[in-house]
Amino acid sequence: MNPYTSTWSGVTPGDGPQEVHVVLLDNGRTRALADQVGRQALRCIRCSACLNVCPVYERTGGHAYGSVYPGPIGAILNPLLRGVGHDEQVDSLPYASSLCGACFEACPVRIDIPSVLVDQRAKVVDARRGHRPSGHTAEALAFKGAAVALSDARKLGFGERFTRVGLGAARRLGSLPGLSKWAGARDLPPAPPESFRAWWSRTDGGRSEGEGR
């Protein structure tokens, strides 16, 4: 036990200060407490075990989190305490993860940091819905396109005709100066000879498969 621990319950006549003021500082704690998924982050005992095992923290260092709480716990605690949708850096924190789960394994009080990260990502998206263009604009646009194509079978079937052309175009895009570094380390899959739909209608759902192509 540490050598000297003092506790007191207000003022003691004739002993010590005769006037005591207590300042209660919320600092976003009740905001975090109200979050059904995120409130578990308040269990944190500041042991730093999650920082030491985090591959993201290992490369970015503490200042990248813009708060006294860095690392995986900071990536969930900062958006929980400060709220999302106001600050670019805070909103980026839940995305600073590959969701590898090393922090959850290391946490002595079992805070499920990956689940809270995913939940906070959803909250960031919700907060930015319909306004506030952000660094995620291209991603949002891509998902909007995907939603249009995937919500209707005919649209999807139509789009599939362009798979080969689209992949070819994407390969050429990858050599553009801004994209080459990212694309150079990634392979696009080869286009299949025919789509599932085309196969299904050609073989009558597999019943006449023997004919070959």
């Binding site: 050598p3 621990t5 003092s6």
Partner: peptide, 16 residues
């Protein structure tokens, strides 16, 4: 504590 008394917990000579 309920009487409002302060407590001092001493575990060995003071050191930090």
């Amino acid at each position: 504590v309920r009487q409002g008394r302060p407590l001092t917990w001493i575990s060995g000579p003071s050191a930090t």
